[in-house]
Write a protein that binds this DNA or RNA. Structure first.
Lengths: 226, 226, 226, 226
DNA sequence: CATGAATGAGAGTTCATTCAT
DNA sequence: TATGAATGAACTCTCATTCAT
């Protein structure tokens, strides 16, 4: 009993040890140029050992994303479980969660965005792939649930909540990738935080119903043009 | 003189021939698994010849982005040159331009977004890198110019136009990457177009000034600053 | 004393357990692709345990042959111990023994033929190697003994009995290897049995003295020529 | 024209250069322990170059057999083309051919016998595999043709010529493998030649019809069946 | 300018073997 | 004695790049 649990714990610790090393190496050398031997060396293990815990390099690479996806999901679930709070404060909770997800591990988050829409995705074990899919889907659903409430309350624009969630997620990932890209090129000040705030502000305002405007103003304007 | 120009033209034609081949191969095999030999074969040239026109694989890879960046810039400049049109229709022209940029070459556009924030960026010749930087910056500036007008006219929220442009670009790239990612995983219907439309709608509405709502407390704050 | 014997017996039982497992794995995966871990798993033991009973993989591999060599030797000794039977029926007993050796374990027999004239042979412990040598030699000697009788009785051709035994053994192994090879390539009907029978028939007839023929006909011919 | 032929010739020369090196390395290190790098080094080429001429190690390994199979086939065809000679002398020509095949390249011949009935066979390109199959089949057929004549003339026993050919080939390969094996183990005198001669003698005599002997009981039996 | 054969470093991965428990 | 996690050397094979022609 105890012995089995201890083994299990140690196994998990080793996995973490490897993941931590992989993160360091990936950050340092870039995701493509890091070798399994580098990671093994960083983890103070032998190359062969890595394969006892991860099927191959891609799986190790992808596993990095799992933790952050888990974290994201937990935060979002927590957000939805506190059902009492009003929509405004929950949206602001959502944004806070996103900041925290970014802080949780910037490198890995970016890595995860890269992972999406790359060939790597296709080489994963079905299990890992479906775990990633599942976590993503559930996280997006949690977001959608949140937006749905606003839509039902008539506060948000009348769009499919899932589409709003997709937009939100796309905006978040887009800002992070683009600002990271800029700071790599320019190596000067990092505008990530500011841009993210502005982006969220625009998004916030954009999903709200603005009675006399939005579509209506267009008509009004159009009328004016005549 | 004439002879020099002809040479120059032929040289440029060869480059294009290679770029076209590279695009085909990258689209087919995925960007990582395409080999220089594949590309040479597709271009009906020998591998060695590729190196007469591109310093290395990364440069060829990155060069693909240049064409699309050029196209983007031209569209945006054109948009701003027709200075008479009102802000609304110019924003809608901007969106149209983005759709066209996507249609221009989806694979390469995604590739370009990947290129951003990847190691590849660091291995480029300074010339190529600065050309990419330059084109990006100019495109973003063109967008900013457009938003700035709205801000000045008091139609758009009172944010730095460059930040709005960054947000817009981030949203655009984020939606494309995320929807592509979803369609790779699920292989079912592609929601790219729909999500992009909703995203733009939200963005549109979000950058507009909506006097009586939501931001009221912030306005208070703003007022205080004065 | 008793305790020592019991230990010895248990040790031997474990060895057999491993050998049985090894046989199964080798048959299934082919001799090269079977791993020590596969075998350990099949034997429901850990990889490390295998090394308590066999010095290394080659030794385990070679040990499989020992059993079949033992079996062969016993059969041959039995054949020679029943000294009363006539030469014809003993030869037919020999052939029967060979069939049975094949049936005893086809995979291992083929494996054994491969083992001969391979590098593996050189990596064995001197003990194991000499045991194999010894068993082979004794088996061949038993065969030779049998042929010798025929030679002494003037029924068989006047050749060194050991050479006849070598020929017999070579014929036997050659047919098995060649027919196996054919059936691997063609995957159609297996002619092993038929070819083996014909081969034995030819051999039978070939080692008999045929007074007026064989060498004599040549002389006859020669005479005719004169 | 000339340029193409020259290239072709040079390509063939390189192939031979590699094959020669492979032969040397295989002989020295044993077929399993020889590495591609060893072979490349021996051929004074780089490892990568080997893969320009052979798909993989197995194919290189198997290609060694092709030359000897070619040689065998040519010898046998030549034997059958001289149709005038009597059966006796043609059989003796066959034996001579076998000796020469052995002399042609002992190592490779043994290698070829090993190749048969091994997993390697299954990993070859279909082309190479079918070339090997084809050459083997044709060689065996040539032998069969030869035996068939003897059968038709009533000089040889009344068996299917293909079965006789199989037996002959099995005997030949069996003797070589067994005698090689013995000489590896004992490192004393090599009896290959002697055993091969005796084996052929026995085979010769064994396939002849010997009217009044040996088979008489069987004939009796046959008669009884009628 | 174009070729394409040759390069050779280096990658991911496997697996026989060891050894602390 | 048995374990099985860890080892790490060694393997095959790839491919961006070069250079003699």
């Amino acid at each position: 009993m105890g012995i089995h649990e201890r083994k299990e714990r140690e196994r998990e610790r080793r996995r973490q040890q490897i993941i931590v090393a992989a993160k360091r190496v990936f950050s340092e050398k870039g995701f493509n140029k890091a070798t399994m031997e580098d990671i093994a060396h960083e983890a103070e293990l032998s190359p062969g050992t890595l394969y006892l815990y991860f099927k191959n390099k891609d799986e190790l690479y992808a596993s990095l994303s799992l933790r952050i996806l888990h974290y994201l999901l937990i935060r979002l679930e927590h957000l939805n479980s506190n059902a009492h709070s009003d929509i405004e404060s929950r949206i602001s909770g959502l944004k806070e969660a996103m900041y925290d997800v970014y802080e949780f591990d910037p490198m890995i988050l970016i890595n995860m965005f890269h992972l999406q829409s790359s060939d790597t995705l296709k080489n994963l074990t079905p299990e890992l792939l479906s775990e990633i899919k599942n976590l993503s889907k559930r996280s997006l659903s949690e977001m959608a649930k949140l937006f749905q409430e606003g839509v039902q309350q008539g506060v948000f624009i009348d769009k499919h909540p899932m589409a709003i969630a997709d937009t939100f997620w796309a905006l978040f990932s887009g800002v992070i990738l683009w600002e990271t890209s800029k700071s790599i090129i320019n190596e000067d000040k990092d505008y990530l935080r500011e841009t993210l705030e502005i982006a969220f502000e625009i998004f916030d305002s954009g999903i709200k119903k603005h009675p006399q405007k939005s579509k209506t103003p267009k008509k009004a304007k159009t009328r004016n043009r005549q």
